[in-house]
Amino acid sequence: MALKVTDLRVYYRTLRGEVKALDGVTFSVADGEIMGLAGESGSGKSTLAKSLIRLDGRMRHAGGTVELDGEAMPLSDDDAMDEFRFRKVSLIPQYSMSALNPTRKIGKMVGELLESRGERPDRAELERRLELVGLSKDVLDRYPIELSGGMKQRVVMVISTLLNPSLLIADEVTSALDVSSQKAVATTLLGFRDRGLVTSMMVVTHDISLVYQIADTIMVMYAGRLAEKAPADVLVNAPRHPYTMQLISALPEVGVRYEDRRLTGIPGNPPSLLKPPGGCRFRDRCPLAFDRCAEQPPFAEVAPGHFVACWKAE
């Protein structure tokens, strides 16, 4: 089992109290598995991704455990976590395009990063990987500001995978790309796995139709908790959680125009994570809600590999 997360809770400290951005999530990612992670904006996807790399000063590990390849990860010990970063787990952060140091040329930055990990840069390998994501080696001599959004995104993708991590977490890496680059990057991610450069992957995205192309499984989050996880085909064709169902049917198909048909999103808003209500967090917006939903539904396995947190899905 590559990654095993058990009842993980990570809260943000704020002046008005703790934001329970990750509030008891339990799941695992198998060796070789590519898992897509989707969910409403603000549901905790990036928090989950960041938690597996580095808790910043405002994040608190409030409970739960994470195991990678059988080893417990010391989430709240930043120094001990250093052992894991880049080599075992690597993150391509959301908005990584603004994360590059503006005063360093790309090539120099890569060199420094490798050095800090005690590795020597292998120029040929670096160029080969740039080519994999459709970049010419010229980018090594350029400053971040001289690259377009999508180009920077791909640079970070190459940097994050240079040390062949066991688990790669990609947070919205394709969001800034045009469809043909998306296809190229997604196929490259798949290639990384197939060539064994990375073992497993968590691909955070809003583009379910995109992640559907490469993922083995898809997991959906809602308001700091897990709603559903299933093999990609099952999740897309036969979702069981009412939130997933509505999310999937909200995807517009090519060809729909506003003048002809006004699409509608899911009515209502997710609950505040400062003081989340008890019970099922989707209750206020759920068309199927009934009395029992005042109690929190477990994330239960309703079919092999298919987990759902909903009383109606049992």
Binding site: A38, G39, E40, S41, Q94, G149, E172, S175, A176, H206, I208, Q246, L247, I248, A250, L251, P252, Y258, R262, L263, T264, G265, I266
Partner: peptide, 17 residues
């Protein structure tokens, strides 16, 4: 400039509307 890229499908539709 790519303002809906980071939004989920349902929120995207709200913003587009």
């Amino acid at each position: 400039d790519e303002i809906i890229s980071m939004l989920d499908a349902s929120t995207r539709i709200d913003v587009l509307n």
